[in-house]
Design a protein around this nucleic acid. Sequence first.
DNA 1: AACCAAGGTGACGTTAACGTCAACTAAGTT
DNA 2: AACTTAGTTGACGTTAACGTCACCTTGGTT
Lengths: 125, 125
Amino acid sequence: MTTLIGDVLTITELAREAGVTARAIRFYESKGLLIPRRAGTTRIYTHRERGRLQLILRGKRLGFTLTDIGEYLDLYDADPTQHDQIVLLLDKVNNRIGELESQKADIDDTLKELSSVRAQALAAM
Amino acid sequence: MTTLIGDVLTITELAREAGVTARAIRFYESKGLLIPRRAGTTRIYTHRERGRLQLILRGKRLGFTLTDIGEYLDLYDADPTQHDQIVLLLDKVNNRIGELESQKADIDDTLKELSSVRAQALAAM
DNA sequence: AACCAAGGTGACGTTAACGTCAACTAAGTT
DNA sequence: AACTTAGTTGACGTTAACGTCACCTTGGTT
């Protein structure tokens, strides 16, 4: 393949950079989460796609489904010039914030319990 | 069925209380995450099983697999009298704590971004 | 005795998120 | 020209976590 000029990547380069397989990246695209441009048939990835991939991976680490992540990504693309869009956007954002806040609470509860388990284990040594 | 006496529940009662299906509870048992006593063939659930079910559900909310959750539950059952067990336990606990801390960091990053999205939406109104 | 609701045990179906071929194409290499 | 190296598109396989029957059993109720 021709070496790409400028700040763009091929699928394998992006895959290695992000620590995922090329198959996974194509799969995300088939779900509409990534829409790279093409040079003929070959996919080319720019800074924008790299950012979106990072958001996808973070969403996965947080336990969201790809469908969830798709809606989440739409928040960034939503056109904030239409009033109805704004209201919808604010609603979605607030919901997501609520979800994450309660997830943080779960994590904090779990961390407390693990500290207690650890303390008991140390006491038994 | 005979009404159970004392602080114990049938599978449907536990299911309703926890907001899951009886099928799911039997499934968790088949994976070794719950081991209720039996009255004949009927499963009976005590305070202990209720607590474990809550831990299972929280683990799921946090995005862990049932296999992960199984190991996690073992941490509470581990016999802390044997030195080797303690060392292993501490290792697992510390790993889990590390995972959760980085998950919290992911959440905080996402919350910041969402706040920014929200601020921009509000500014556009 | 007849019945019925709650519970039990397989066994198969389903969705999500990829992995794994297989077969083909386009672009440099030798 | 022959070969090799990405990259592409189906198509089928796989694992996790249950849902959904279908069929059987048991303990109260009528």
